[in-house]
């Protein structure tokens, strides 16, 4: 039902580096899970409106007031994997 190639492609989409053994194990487990969830095929859903979100949302407004912002938190900076001075450092995302 799901090929190893498909599993590799999905791992790629999900940005997970997995070993060949891990991928094969996932293939087996996914087949079992997909087989189980595929029973939804037998439900007639024609004309049914899909549910999006936890409940029917109402418009919520709040008083206009000065809320406490997060501000500068040393802790936030300290636990960042890479930093330079007071800045968080992220890898370059645009190649030269």
């Amino acid at each position: 039902m799901i090929t190893l190639e498909q599993v590799k492609h999905l791992a790629d989409l999900a940005h997970m580096e997995l070993s060949e053994t891990e991928l094969k194990k996932l293939q087996k487990e996914m087949e079992q899970i997909l087989d189980y969830i595929s029973q939804l095929e037998e439900v007639d859903v024609s004309g049914i409106e899909p549910v999006a979100g936890g409940h029917e949302l109402e418009n919520v407004v709040r008083e206009k007031d000065a809320a406490v912002s997060f501000g500068f938190d040393e802790n936030m900076l300290l636990q960042f994997p890479e930093k330079q001075g007071d800045y968080n450092k992220v890898p370059k995302i645009i190649e030269k």
């Binding site: 791992a11 989409l13 899970i33 939804l40 095929e41 049914i48 549910v51």
Partner: peptide, 25 residues
């Protein structure tokens, strides 16, 4: 992996959208 599969192009309607309709039922 299952979530990525259910949301991926070509499978969205058969899985995610269908599940949201079943949720309505």
């Amino acid at each position: 992996m299952i979530g990525t599969f259910c949301l991926s192009s070509g499978y969205y309607d058969a899985y995610y959208s269908r599940a949201q309709k079943v949720r309505r039922l």
